[in-house]
Amino acid sequence: MVTPTRDRQPKVQVRDLSIHYGGKAALAGATFEIHEHEIFGIIGPAGSGKTSFLRAMNRMDLFNPAMEVGGEISMDGKDVRKWKNVYALRRRIGVVFPLPVGLPMSIYENVALAPRLGGTRKRADLDVIVERCLTRAALWDEVKDRLDSLGSLLSGGQQQRLTIARALSQEPELLLLDEFSIAVDPVTTMKIEDVLKELRQELTIVLVTNLVQQARRLADRTAFFLTGELVEVAPTEDLFTGGASDERTTAYVEGRFG
């Protein structure tokens, strides 16, 4: 938060992005940039288009024929829709959605899956990755003695942290988090938040959250979305100290609606 972020390279450029689901608009004409090595917060009430942006970023429109994306999202200057190998793109982007998904395989395999697919075969290397990712997701201490049990049978909060560990196991350049703390208790949330602050040294994080205070604690800059419209993007502190240029933003961060 100390370094002025504007000197850095844009990691992601979004130009005139609009997203429709079967004709219904979810996001219209959003243009903004996400800088390298920053935590970029996105706040806004439900239905504002936050999640749709993450989906488009990771080319999840390919999963859903009803989802149409217009405009452009570039990572490192390249439109994500122009990638020849969309799987390589997705490997470079880690995502965590609010509904935790523990895959029906052992906890170890959950985390080792992405590295394995990426060609890491040596057990010792995998061991290191699994321990590191589970530790960062604040799950290691709880599961280190039962790495063989099914990931899909963990509690909701544990599955959420397993999902985070899995996203980290890809060694992504860009980490997209969508309300990750929804199923996690406050103490663990704080632990993960500390890890996210550290991770900023290595990667770029997009943090979609419905908790404005979480954005305030973590994000360098924050965007405010409202019913499919990008209201504004500004350094987080500005938004919370009366520097918002739009009255609606101030109203939202002060909790007057949402």
Partner: peptide, 22 residues
């Protein structure tokens, strides 16, 4: 962060997995 294991990011190329998938 265990730099020994970290690899160069995957380039945007059609690799074996892509061709197998097709």
């Amino acid at each position: 962060m265990a730099q020994g294991i970290a690899k160069a990011p995957l380039p945007d190329q059609r690799n074996l997995a892509w061709y197998v998938d097709k």
